[in-house]
């Protein structure tokens, strides 16, 4: 099999983008298999570890990893680096897939907000998101072990919403600024898109 690597996007526009984001954009825009292979090497072991932690055996976990990575390839046009981090986007695909497998039902998902997927957002917006993601990871790293375990359990789907609610020490406040900034971005994008209403 031969891979054709397309030229990277203009470095001036992508300075400050993470390696994962650059790979994902190459997959989305150039259908770049070498970039997909690099994404696979980065995320497949993390996905397998993540899925096995929620109780699935190694064999079944690999089946889910396969489905998730194929979805990353097939639905790459839905990836928008101005709204999602690659890890967050893949996280959601993985959880949806696990639920489909475990419960044999399709998880209800929200409608996509925009029609014009695939357009390049403002580079500073992408870099802002990357910085927020780094801060989130660092905030996770600073938590006390029991708090960190609670966050992991919550996002592995191991806690009911009542259990999450009763964890009063759960530092969900760390994402409040992320919500606020995300809302500003969405309002900004919608304003731009709705000028001809």
């Amino acid at each position: 099999m031969t891979y054709v690597t397309s030229p990277d996007p203009d470095p001036a526009d992508t300075a400050g983008f993470s390696q994962e984001t650059l790979w994902m954009l190459a997959v989305r825009d150039q259908r770049d298999k070498a970039a997909f292979s690099a994404l696979f090497d980065h995320f497949a072991p993390r996905l397998k570890g993540f899925i096995m932690r929620s109780g699935m055996g190694g064999g079944q976990a690999e089946e889910v990893v396969q489905e998730v990575m194929l979805t990353v390839w097939r639905k790459a046009d839905l990836f928008d680096p101005g709204r999602a981090q690659v890890s967050g986007w893949i996280y959601q695909i993985a959880r949806n897939r696990q639920i489909d497998v475990i419960r044999k039902e399709n998880r209800p998902v929200p409608e996509e907000l925009y029609e014009d997927q695939g357009s390049m957002p403002d580079a500073s917006q992408v870099v802002g998101l990357e910085q927020e993601a780094n801060e989130l990871r660092q905030a996770l790293g600073r938590l006390k072990p029991d708090q960190r375990e609670m966050i992991e359990k919550a996002y592995l789907g191991e806690l009911t919403h009542q259990e999450i609610k009763s964890q009063t020490g759960l530092p969900l406040g760390t994402i409040k600024s992320r919500i606020r900034l995300g809302l500003e971005r969405l309002r900004h994008e919608l304003k731009d898109m709705r000028t001809d209403d």
Binding site: K48, V65, Y91, A133, I151, Y155, L156, T174, G182, L183
Partner: peptide, 27 residues
């Protein structure tokens, strides 16, 4: 929109957990 932003923020936190909670070698 407000809850869409909240949903995206929770996905980002889930992504941070995925990035940092350990790896298992794949075949």
């Amino acid at each position: 929109l407000e809850c869409h932003a909240s949903y995206e923020a929770h996905q980002a936190l889930g992504g941070a957990v995925l990035e940092t909670s350990g790896e298992a070698a794949v075949s």
